[in-house]
Computed example of a mutant assay.
Amino acid sequence: MQLPTVEELRLQCRIDIDDEDPLLLGYLTAAKEKASNYLNRNLYESDVPDGDNEGLIITPIIKLALMLAVGFWYDTRELKKVPQGFYDLLSDYRISLMRIKQC
């Protein structure tokens, strides 16, 4: 699955013009990084590269979490703590650090 498009982000944020596109794309980049850090996994839009055994293709639930974060940051205009729903959506895909250390 692909990252949310700028059009999808505009719908999420209820924006009718493209003036805010750079801001939305910046929030999307931050949301993807935040999700990847929380999951302890790299996120990919299509194929997971060889050698990245823990890599993950973006699923509809991950896409929704990214859109939730973008919408939250757009609404608050601050990069403060994302809502718990972001973590709830991602938690099924998370690799615990304890598991990584045991490998």
Rank of each mutant, 00 (worst) to 15 (best):
V6A: 14
D75E: 15
M98P: 00
E78F: 01
L3F: 04
D19E: 13
Y27K: 04
S46L: 13
L97I: 13
W73I: 00
S46F: 13
R41Q: 10
I61G: 06
I61C: 13
T5M: 05
R14P: 01
R77W: 11
S96E: 15
K63Y: 09
C13T: 12
K80I: 04
V6M: 09
T76I: 14
A65H: 01
F72K: 07
L25V: 09
S36P: 07
N40C: 13
Q102T: 06
Y44D: 06
I100V: 15
Y38E: 04
V48E: 08
L25D: 07
E33Y: 15
P60E: 08
E33N: 15
T76E: 14
Y87T: 11
D88M: 09
A30R: 12
R99I: 12
L56S: 00
I17A: 15
L39H: 03
N42C: 13
D52Y: 03
G71W: 09
V48W: 07
D52R: 04
L89I: 04
G55L: 07
P49V: 04
D50Y: 11
N40L: 12
E45K: 05
Q2H: 06
E54H: 02
T29P: 00
L9G: 02
T5D: 10
Y74A: 02
G71T: 08
D88C: 06
K34C: 08
T76R: 11
I57K: 14
Y74V: 00
I61W: 09
D18F: 07
M98Y: 07
K34E: 10
L79P: 01
D18K: 12
L11R: 15
G55T: 08
R77M: 12
A65G: 02
K63W: 08
G26Q: 14
M1I: 08
K32N: 09
L28C: 03
I62C: 08
R14S: 13
V70S: 02
I62F: 05
D88T: 11
K34I: 04
N42Y: 14
P4F: 03
T76H: 05
L9V: 10
L28T: 00
K34R: 12
T5H: 05
C103L: 11
L9A: 07
D92G: 03
G51C: 14
I62D: 06
D21S: 12
D50L: 11
L89T: 00
P60M: 05
G71M: 08
S36Y: 06
E54R: 01
L56I: 03
M98S: 12
A30G: 04
Q102V: 08
G55A: 09
I58N: 02
D21A: 11
P4G: 06
R94V: 07
L24T: 02
R94C: 06
F86W: 02
D16C: 07
Y93A: 05
L64A: 15
N37D: 10
L66I: 03
R10I: 09
L28Y: 01
A30K: 10
I61M: 15
P4Y: 04
G71D: 10
K101P: 00
G26P: 01
K34H: 13
L28N: 00
K63I: 09
L89Y: 06
I100A: 11
E78W: 00
R94N: 05
K81V: 01
L24C: 02
L3W: 02
Q2D: 10
Q2A: 07
T29Y: 11
V82Y: 00
D88V: 06
